[in-house]
Amino acid sequence: MRVQTEEWRRFIPGSQMYKGKKTLFYNGEILWDADEGEYLVYDEEEQHSWEVIIVLPGVEVIPEETFSGCDKIETVIMADTVRRIEWSAFASCNSLVFVRLSRNLEVIGDYAFCGCDSLTSIFIPPSCAVIDKCAFYGSSDLRILHVPRHTHLGEGVIERTALIRASPFEVDQYGKYDVNITESVNEWIRNLNGDDDQFALHRACSSFNPITEIIYEIVKRKGLCSFKKENQIDITPLEYLEANPFAEDIDQSLIANRYVLEMMGEAV
């Protein structure tokens, strides 16, 4: 679900139908009392009906366990005011497939997206300083995790995910690895596409701020086939581009058409 920037101004907090989906326009309220095991604002039936969460401008923190276990949520879109996602905020959201994080996010807490079985990709903005312990633990289908090199990663961030199973590290049948290799695993995550020129297009397409001209110049130099070149975990630049929530304005087909026309000597 795409949300235009100008739309933010007209959203009213609360639960309603929006573009055919049961949507919560979230204003930062504490929805759940973990100590008492009580629903504070919406009842259990209501929380388990949400398909989309839109975090409204002004919200800076998503409190712990806020959406934990909301198994119908498919999409989460955050305003760029969000700076922290606390412990288990989206844990066990089994239907979650799309997350657009805040561009100003600083911290992802312990177990924040633990057990999100349907989540296949997530792109971390450069503002993020810390991803805490087991943030994506058990998100079994997670293949793409784009992380800035300066981001500190805790233990077990990608344990029991498709990404660790595709890595060069030894894991057990459940996708768990020895705690002693945590730093090696985390360094591998941060440097997955490295500095090698052969992965220049991978880096451009997975950027939090992909730019058409940069992508085009790389394609022009390497050819259209570069869109389908796999890295060491079998991810192509095109897959990064299609999954990247910050790349909504990048049209691969227009880039390809421009390339063909230029190769034919046509004006672009």
Rank of each mutant, 00 (worst) to 15 (best):
residue 34 A to M: 08
residue 34 A to G: 00
residue 124 I to C: 03
residue 32 W to H: 06
residue 71 D to M: 10
residue 100 R to G: 01
residue 93 C to D: 10
residue 122 I to D: 00
residue 81 T to V: 07
residue 40 L to K: 07
residue 48 H to M: 12
residue 111 Y to R: 01
residue 82 V to P: 03
residue 80 D to G: 04
residue 58 G to L: 10
residue 115 G to I: 13
residue 125 P to C: 01
residue 40 L to H: 08
residue 118 S to E: 15
residue 50 W to S: 04
residue 25 F to I: 12
residue 94 N to R: 04
residue 60 E to C: 06
residue 49 S to V: 06
residue 75 T to Y: 15
residue 81 T to M: 07
residue 55 V to M: 04
residue 100 R to I: 09
residue 65 E to C: 13
residue 36 E to T: 09
residue 54 I to M: 08
residue 126 P to N: 00
residue 72 K to Q: 14
residue 41 V to L: 13
residue 45 E to Y: 11
residue 66 T to N: 04
residue 122 I to G: 00
residue 61 V to W: 14
residue 50 W to T: 06
residue 55 V to N: 02
residue 40 L to T: 15
residue 111 Y to Q: 00
residue 106 E to H: 07
residue 86 E to F: 03
residue 29 E to Q: 14
residue 50 W to C: 08
residue 89 A to D: 08
residue 53 I to D: 05
residue 86 E to W: 06
residue 26 Y to F: 15
residue 106 E to G: 12
residue 118 S to F: 08
residue 39 Y to C: 07
residue 103 R to Q: 12
residue 72 K to Y: 02
residue 87 W to R: 05
residue 109 G to F: 09
residue 46 E to V: 15
residue 87 W to N: 15
residue 38 E to W: 11
residue 102 S to C: 05
residue 99 V to H: 02
residue 36 E to G: 14
residue 56 L to I: 13
residue 122 I to T: 04
residue 31 L to A: 10
residue 52 V to G: 01
residue 27 N to F: 04
residue 37 G to K: 03
residue 98 F to S: 06
residue 92 S to P: 00
residue 93 C to Q: 04
residue 63 P to S: 15
residue 56 L to P: 02
residue 99 V to M: 14
residue 27 N to C: 12
residue 108 I to N: 00
residue 73 I to Y: 01
residue 59 V to D: 11
residue 95 S to I: 04
residue 117 D to M: 12
residue 52 V to H: 09
residue 71 D to C: 09
residue 71 D to Y: 05
residue 67 F to G: 02
residue 51 E to T: 11
residue 84 R to K: 08
residue 31 L to Q: 05
residue 61 V to P: 05
residue 88 S to E: 14
residue 42 Y to S: 02
